[in-house]
Each structure stands twice: as C-alpha cells, then as structure tokens.
Amino acid sequence: MCARCALCWRSQGESRRSPVPAPEKPIPSVWTRPRKQKEQPALSRERIVAEAVALLDAEGIDNLSMRSLGTRLGAGATSLYRHVANKDELIELVVDEVYGELEVRDVGDPAEWRAAAADSAHSLRSMALRHPWVVSVLGQVGLAYLGPNMMSLTERMLAIFEAAGFDLAEADQAMSTVISYVIGMVTSEAAYLSVLARSGQTEQEWVESLRPAAEEATKDHPRLNEGYAAQRDRDPAEIREETFNYGLDRVLDGLEVRLGHTKG
C-alpha cells in the first residue's frame, strides 16, 4: 500500500478499484536507478546535493542548472552527470534533502496525537519558509515520495494518526489532509516572502508602504476596512502565524470529531 502524502501522485482508492496497466515508458526517477558504486571522493552525490540546496536558497529555482551548480563546485557539468543523471533527478534529491529537516516526534500516549500532529505541521511550514523554492517544484518531483527522508517522514506521521485511533488506511488520509493544508497555506506564504526578499524591504516596511493604497482600496468596503484597521499596528509575521494556527486547529478539530465517530 502506498503511504500517501501531499507529494504522492497516486490514489489509494483508484488502485483498489481497478488495476492500473503498467506504463509503456517508466517514470524516470533517481530512486529507481541503481546508484553507481564508485564515486569521485571530491565530488560525491551528497556534496552536490548540499551545494544545490545552498544555490537554491540563495538564488532561487530559476537559477538552478547543472552548469551553474558545476561552477559553484568548481567542476564541469559533465562531472556532475556521473552522480546525477539530469536536473530532474537533482530536484528529487534536493527535495528529499530538505524534507530530512522535518521533526516528527513519537507518540507514547495516544492523548498526545494532536500536539504531535500540530508540531509536525509547524515543522513542515518552517522548512518550506526556509527553502521557499521547494513549493514551486512539488508538482515536478516524480517519484519523490520514494526518497529515504520522505519515507521516514511518512512512516512517523502515520504512526501519529494510528496512535490517535485511526486504522492505517484512514491514518493515511488524515495525514494527507494535514499535509495538504500546510502545503496550501505555505505556497502563497513562501511566494509572498520571496517577493519581499527581492524588494530589499522588511515585512513591516513593505506593509507600511502599502498602507495608503490599502486604505484607499477598502474605504468603500466596511467589513474589509474594519478588518484592516484592526490589524494595522500588528506585526505582520504574527498575523501570518495566527492565521496558520487557526486553520490548522480547525483541521485537527475535524479529525478529532471524526475519531469520536469511529470510536462510537
């Protein structure tokens, strides 16, 4: 059974309803290609991936290429191809690398499942905001869910929802629901922060610069105007955190209600 997450393109339900014919052409992935046993010590796959993450963090996805990465490593693109077949494989590797930063704690007491799920969601959000490029590549990572970090993350998150009282199939669905919420929220948040970073302004400076336009735009909309006025002097980062927490709490509320039905 495939332990689904927000990155997994397959559907458990579809796979149970009808057999899916094998594709004529396999989906290429770094995780399905045997790794070469001999690598140049000075240029390992691990070093390539670490440098690629640093490049992406500094310059964004548009500036990632095998040539630009080779330049940072002091090596030609040809040397990189001995370790990574192409840019698509490189993206699979860097996505799995940053997913290795996530923290998912064990649940000893079933009553702790909600706090553990919330902590995992916050860890995922924090990772995506540290590496805002990651949300732009989630749709092109092929079989990324087969990466070792992703597999470990999925296994540990499934354990949280099993501890809560869901059977394995529904634990999978509950996990996917939480991850989908986080990815949906953080996609727009990361895009906003990326634009902010390019502007050279702090978030507070950006908000202040927009204040005259926002006040003019909301003056004929009393509800929007009231809401804007109520948040005018607040820290925008604090508002983002509060908004994220509100939605996450409502998702977990729904899962808690569902648990009550399953146990009843």
Rank of each mutant, 00 (worst) to 15 (best):
K87T: 15
P148Y: 01
S126M: 12
A42I: 02
E89Y: 07
E59G: 04
E59Y: 02
G139L: 13
A58H: 07
G165H: 05
A111L: 13
D109K: 03
L80E: 09
Y145W: 15
D106P: 00
E112M: 09
A117E: 07
A164P: 03
I27A: 09
L69I: 09
Q37G: 06
H131K: 02
A75Y: 12
D57R: 10
S123Y: 08
V84W: 11
E24W: 00
D62A: 14
V141M: 12
V30S: 04
I160F: 03
V95W: 02
I91Y: 12
A118E: 15
Q37F: 02
P26W: 01
I160A: 01
F161W: 12
S123V: 10
W31I: 06
L55F: 06
S68W: 12
R130C: 06
Y145D: 15
L90D: 05
A85K: 14
L93Y: 07
N63K: 14
V135L: 14
G139K: 10
S123G: 04
P28I: 06
R105Q: 10
P132W: 13
L124H: 11
P41C: 04
E101H: 07
S152A: 15
Q40Y: 01
K87P: 10
L124P: 02
V107H: 03
Q140C: 11
M150A: 07
L55K: 05
E89T: 02
L56E: 06
A116P: 00
P41V: 09
T78K: 14
S79W: 08
V104C: 03
